[in-house]
Design a protein around this nucleic acid. Sequence first.
DNA 1: TTGTACGCGTTATCAA
DNA 2: TTGATAACGCGTACAA
Lengths: 356, 356
Amino acid sequence: MTNPTPTLSHTIADIKAIIHREARRVTSYDVASLAGVSQSAVSRCFKPGASVSKATYARVMQAAQDLDYIPNAAARSLITRRSNLVAVIVAGAVSQHYSDVLSELSCQFSRRGMHIILFNLPSESAMDRTLAEVWQHQVDGAVVAARLSGDQVAEFERRQVPLVLFNRNVAGRAVSAVVCNQEEAARAMVTRLAAGGHKRFAMIDGPAQSPIAQQRKRGMAGRLAELGLPAPLAVAGGFDYASGARGLREIIDRFGGVPDVIVCGNDLMAIGCLDTARHDFNIDVPDRLSVTGFDGIAASSWISYNLTTMRQPLLSMAQAAAEMLVGLVGGTGSGHEQRSYSATFVDGATARLGPA
Amino acid sequence: MTNPTPTLSHTIADIKAIIHREARRVTSYDVASLAGVSQSAVSRCFKPGASVSKATYARVMQAAQDLDYIPNAAARSLITRRSNLVAVIVAGAVSQHYSDVLSELSCQFSRRGMHIILFNLPSESAMDRTLAEVWQHQVDGAVVAARLSGDQVAEFERRQVPLVLFNRNVAGRAVSAVVCNQEEAARAMVTRLAAGGHKRFAMIDGPAQSPIAQQRKRGMAGRLAELGLPAPLAVAGGFDYASGARGLREIIDRFGGVPDVIVCGNDLMAIGCLDTARHDFNIDVPDRLSVTGFDGIAASSWISYNLTTMRQPLLSMAQAAAEMLVGLVGGTGSGHEQRSYSATFVDGATARLGPA
DNA sequence: TTGTACGCGTTATCAA
DNA sequence: TTGATAACGCGTACAA
């Protein structure tokens, strides 16, 4: 009785038993021995574009399937020095806001065979500890949507880990970033509001540490000054719904009445402000008071709000960030390209506006 | 001139130059040579609870810091067979809804020295391809908030990768899961609504493939039958805001008017329904029509809505999922513990209710 | 096209 | 407590 296939050292069951006994994982050696080829042949079969004969490829793939073999990414990354892992570092507060961004990044990277390790900062101060964990995992690059010091950026350079900042800037350092021009957005908003005849501006500001809040505030103040309008009455907020409600009360208290317009640091606060104005104070928006936001979150376009706001093109920005990082990992790109996006004005129903 | 420290084979600059020239990473050998100890000594210094003398430890740590040495997680995971990586697999549609869950999971795991690799399914059908990528990365476990077939669950078992399902069930298989009892929640809601005198029920259902939507629908239908009330008029929805608006129109069309109550498959649809009812149809909610949701998302408690809904304890559930998975990875736990949570009734202002 | 031999950077074992 | 040595599972020169 002849056997047409080459004599194999082990059957599937044999090998599986051995693996089980030795409490090992299935390795390329196991596949090789089942397929009757060398380990390197197996390795080549899993490398796209490697030189393998059709017959060998088929035998190896069959054996791999029989044994449920999957290459070990850890071992591979050890030798190739590529982990196909990207760190995404976000500060806890913004992570809700950025859930769409996260999905988009995940899709974009997975399309290129890469995956995301998520680092969620409980507080911005935990960055150094977090970075240490990032280095351990040998990520190929990082997208950071959190505050980074100059030294921290320098460490990325020193370790040669490509870095793309998301909606953040680092003063005085050449670093790749995808940003939305917050200051310009704020100026545009003020311009429209002023054209609508608003004179007495108030604002509910974001957290003092937030660079985005700072930029929006600066843009607003700058444009108001240019237009010869009085500086806005600014109260502090925390970018959340409750801050909008509190902010309105504080403004009414300190203003001794209602201003012409309340520019809120983001949509969530604008919605809180709007709800409180209408339901608790019975203030007609926009007839007696205009309220505006920033961001263009989903809720801003709900019928109840139809918020006048500036929309950030977050999805495009996420795409750009992924694309830039992939470029940097691949060796393309300068390492300090800044892609700047503009927010678009959303002509809602919460502000009395002049002609466009 | 005597040197009190032991003679070292290289200075910091020497070693850094060598590393640079050879385009290598800093390894434990480099640290060892700088500190004048063996490589194993370095390794021990980075292993908590290993036996190292104080003097050695100090010298090694100093050298490590001088060279910016960080242990390589890939190499470590190769030998320890632990990657300290957990896969979190979510279906694209739910990822927005689960952003809080994701943050919480990330915090919980990072507290235990583990990190999350995010797998975001574009469509539920991409699961097999995704799982192949999961296996590659040698994750220590997985939290899955997406549809999983029996075979797919079996593969987790075969590969001995601990698995915790999040708000999902797999029929006929013993598998660890954290769930919220959707059917019970729906029954509770119907009970309250019936006590409020509602008789003609309509519902805006979630996607047909969604098990959560199915369970909520089943609970509702079951309880209505028990109470001797007519079966609800059900229209299809997609768990998004627009579905709520469309659903209302369809119900009014098919019902030939307004039912007593519209039970929505989730809060987002309830909010869409509510907005459309009030602003487009001028229907008084709750006086003429009651509208209820499920989930207890942030927006449901905004002043404009104050939605009557059933709140899922998502944060507790996320904590539980992390805790269970860590237990399974550590060898504790049965592998098929089901932790079931109950939704809590939120007595909002969008439904006419009987006494509690 | 295929196989041999080596190295990636770490932890684990064991003898000193 | 310390150091030599052997894995871990893979990719890749190099020779055949």
